[in-house]
Design a protein around this nucleic acid. Structure first.
Lengths: 326, 326
DNA sequence: AAATTATATGAAATCGATTCCAGGAAGTAT
DNA sequence: ATACTTCCTGGAATCGATTTCATATAATTT
């Protein structure tokens, strides 16, 4: 069933049927008959033929580092709210934290598949930067920044700094479980915020310890064990993510450290899982859903105006102090 | 840059260029020159023109109830492992547990967009059943069954029954936080397994209590409070999902019930979050990643053979007893 | 040597829509 | 009455690939 069949059945030309679907000039009379035929046959225009002609896919590629992540799902939720209103469909590319997959999706999406791309990125290599800048379709970065590219990102530096200022009030010996510095947002910025707050308070560098973990509960548990085995005097632990804080919590609970009395503990993300342990874990996070919405709006702007001006939107933090900090 | 441009540059016809890409008859000589031109120009055939001609999209629609769910992400991971090998891309439709969204995606995917559909469904209304059966493209159900449709589903009934048999050894007064029975897998089957195990052991029906919660921690916490306020003598609580078990744990911890001494507690799903509380929560789950793989393979079969024989694969359960049960 | 088969190529039709163009009818301004 | 718009319509070109068909040459059988 194609447009010619409908045209024949309705006794009009294909042009007229096309106009019926695209709000072109059409008489009430023909409109009625085409409507009737379309309803009877359940005809739907082929999106592929439309795309071939119009170059519009009505598909937006969203590249995400991980499906099962609360922050990611909130961001995607926000993106979807805005884009589904405009009849866009999301083509999700899940990389499971594999940067090569990220490159693959960037290429595949760019070739032919989508009208625009939102990249919830993590690590940017030179290849990433090249592909991002060379993107033929509008691209918005979410959660990271890159000069010359539109982005919505989070003020990780000040979030970590502010949280650390709070920890300093009662802390003596500090430690941080960090993420890889290749991840600027979750790794570098949070570490720098932590460090700068401590410098500001003129904390003795000998009383600051670091361990780097991967983005998993298990990895953080092991790193926490190493940290405390070497430095049992740590009384304040800042974790770069809530998941890491859970890993740390598990280790600390297992060796009988009381939280927050002996060790105070916090994470980043304001995620649900931070509320599962008892005591609930203090965290600082961002309005991720809103970030997603903003990114989607930025993309829509770029799509309609085709404008080459790129905007960078920085999102402020939200503190959520609970009982794991003093 | 299209196929004619390449043909001109290479001094051949478009047919020959097309054959170059589709392993048709082509001389080594022309192959070499086309290869050179393609590499120089970075030309990639338009997937939309290809689809228009071949009716193959190389896209598989996967409809999921929720992005941020461990079971879902494991299943999607399994699906993706198999399908990406065959150069399929996943078009994810996230319904956020809204059944109308499910219908929408079923329609959109069916129109033109995808070669096949995997539906990780929840509630099936009459409309769902109609759309599923009328699907123009092969469709595989994952996590639920429907007569006459290919599916990979989990033996929720026996999983719940087996777990309950374990609880019976030390339990006296039983309760279950259930999911809506409209969700056959998570709601009805698990409830029936629980009930039948208790009947088998000839437990006094007066010592069995029920509360129904939505799929969220908060909802389960409230339901748990209601249950225990009315029946403080409950000493064994079966939750239909791990998330619900977390909610129950939070309430029980807040009123100072000791787990598992005063109340033993378990969930379903074998998810990471069940290991976060102390004590870790016993659970019974399924090899979700493998289920996803199987569903993908079923779909590939249907895609290649175009065979109308539908298979139903039942997946067995895996018990994970931890310290929240006696 | 003749017949058959496999390999190689280009022209043209095709997939299913949109859109440009030309032309007709109807309404309005001059 | 004439000149302009505005509205409405169908024919034909077009988007960018694949595929059928016709044809030619090379390789293999008989």
């Amino acid at each position: 069933m194609n447009i010619s069949d409908i045209a024949k059945l309705a006794g009009v030309s294909t042009s007229t049927v096309s106009r019926y679907f695209n709000n072109g000039y059409i008489s009430a009379e023909k409109k009625a008959i085409i409507k009737k035929i379309v309803e009877e046959t359940g005809y739907q225009p082929s999106t592929y033929a439309q795309t071939l002609r119009t170059k519009q896919t009505r598909l937006i590629g969203v590249i995400i580092p991980k499906l099962n992540s609360e922050t990611v799902s909130k961001m995607v939720g926000g993106i979807n709210q805005i884009l589904s209103e405009e009849d866009y469909l999301l083509l999700l590319g899940d990389t499971e934290n594999d940067e090569r997959e990220e490159l693959k999706f960037l290429q595949v999406f760019n070739q032919n598949q989508v009208d625009g791309i939102i990249l919830i990125g993590t690590i940017f290599t030179a290849k990433h930067k090249k592909l991002i800048k060379d993107s033929k379709v509008p691209l918005v970065l979410l959660g990271q920044t890159l000069p010359g590219v539109s982005s919505v990102y989070h003020d990780n530096y000040n979030a970590a700094k502010q949280m650390t200022r709070h920890l300093i009030k009662t802390g003596k010996v500090f430690a941080m479980i960090t993420a890889t510095e290749e991840d600027k947002a979750a790794g570098l910025d949070r570490k720098n915020g932590f460090l700068d707050a401590l410098r500001e308070a003129e904390i003795d560098p000998d009383k600051i310890h670091f361990g780097e973990a991967r983005f998993s509960i298990d990895s953080a548990r092991e790193v926490c064990q190493a940290l405390f085995t070497k430095n049992p005097e740590i009384d304040t632990l800042f974790c770069a993510t809530d998941n890491m804080a859970i890993g740390a919590y598990q280790y600390l609970a297992s060796i009988g450290k009381s939280i927050p009395e002996q060790v105070q503990l916090c994470g980043v993300g304001n995620s649900t899982i931070a509320n599962v342990p008892y005591p609930a874990i203090s965290s600082v996070g961002f309005p991720y859903e809103e970030s997603g919405q903003l990114a989607a709006e930025l993309l829509l702007d770029a799509l309609s105006e085709g404008d080459k001006v790129n905007k960078e939107i920085k999102i402020g933090y939200e503190m959520a102090l609970k009982d794991s900090t003093r």
